[in-house]
Nucleic acid binder design. Structure first.
Lengths: 189, 189
DNA sequence: TAGTAAAACTAACAATCGTTAGTTTTGTAG
DNA sequence: CTACAAAACTAACGATTGTTAGTTTTACTA
């Protein structure tokens, strides 16, 4: 499915380093050392440092976009849609926790084309989320709180999952989904 | 109260740039340009780039530590303590939203002494938070969900406030506090 | 075993990094 | 007006950055 060659190994290795120190603080020599080769050798497989970042972020963003679009055009209830969104974030976190760090913290280092593309996807994603919440509030199925606060607080938690999950690997993914749905939707009191 | 001289102006200016691009991607020449002077002139006021980062982060971390310690040793109910924690985060966000970006994303670039100090403060803060939640669950005043998930989801939202609040400046702080308490503690359904 | 393509290497480049030294300008108090 | 300190400046340093060019090694396949 994925082009699992040397290039993908480099990208995966880079994602780990970017997660630990951020894109700008990781040098090509750092990345090469992590791969056990010299910096110049990286360029037999990749075109630039920027290409690595773009590959990490754009792939993930498109994954989120695809998942959200499917949820939006489904005919599930509002509550079920929100549950699906939570599950989408958890699934992606489980399979690509490292890359999510770049998506969250290093997207601003994307260059012109990819930056615009990313920002568009993020905007659409948030707007879809907002619309679902808005509908839920209007229908009375969600409590009548400030919509922006609901969207922000839920999304904040989901976006930061990647920081927390690796420390809790013992939790079963299905239990995690269930508990997260309970906490995020029904509150903690 | 604060030493509001040229040095603090540089630190405040740096916090804005660090928020936009991250510590490693901001050069001393960038910072100097933002101040309208040359890079070398910065060194009449500060000792190093590292000192700026440490000043931003340690000040904030100590602020959180002080606030949490007061809440812990108070004799408020568990619910009231959680409300106080939410208010603490909102208050700090309102007065120093820029610096919070460094606290969240650039703490790993602190050097040995300050890095250890910061990590200790963060650990203690989280442990205090966890203990309050644990007590609440044991007393039955909080729902019996996974404690780690409660702590993580609440803290994620509070820590990310700095990203969101500047876009919503029209919201009155007291209303924000009230709504945030409702959403975080009582859920959105 | 000879040929070939992938993937590593050495060496170096121009640009930029944080920082220092030494000098000049600016603003204020006597 | 003079003296002085604060705060700016110019010029440069050694180190490091992403990247390129050209070469050698490695691993298969015919």
């Amino acid at each position: 499915m994925k082009p699992e060659g040397r290039k993908q190994e480099i990208i995966d290795s880079a994602a780990i380093l970017f997660k630990e120190r951020g894109y700008s603080a990781v040098t090509m020599r750092d990345l090469a050392r992590a791969m056990g080769i010299k910096a110049a050798s990286l360029y037999n497989h990749i075109q630039s440092k920027q290409e690595i970042l773009a590959s990490i972020i754009i792939d993930l963003a498109e994954h989120f976009t695809t998942g959200m679009n499917e949820i939006v055009k489904s005919d599930l209830t509002i509550i079920k849609k929100l549950e699906k969104i939570i599950e989408l974030h958890i699934d992606i976190t489980l399979t690509n926790a490292d890359g999510l760090a770049s998506l969250n913290n290093d997207w601003m280092h994307l260059e012109e084309e990819n930056l615009t593309y990313f920002e568009q996807m993020r905007h659409d994603y948030e707007e879809n989320f907002r619309q679902i919440v808005r509908t839920g509030v209007n229908n009375g199925v969600l409590a009548n709180n400030n919509i922006e606060i609901i969207v922000f607080s839920t999304l904040s938690t989901l976006r930061t999952l990647y920081l927390w999950y690796p420390k809790q690997r013992t939790i079963d993914p299905d239990i995690l989904k269930k508990d997260m749905i309970t906490v995020l939707l029904k509150g903690i009191i």
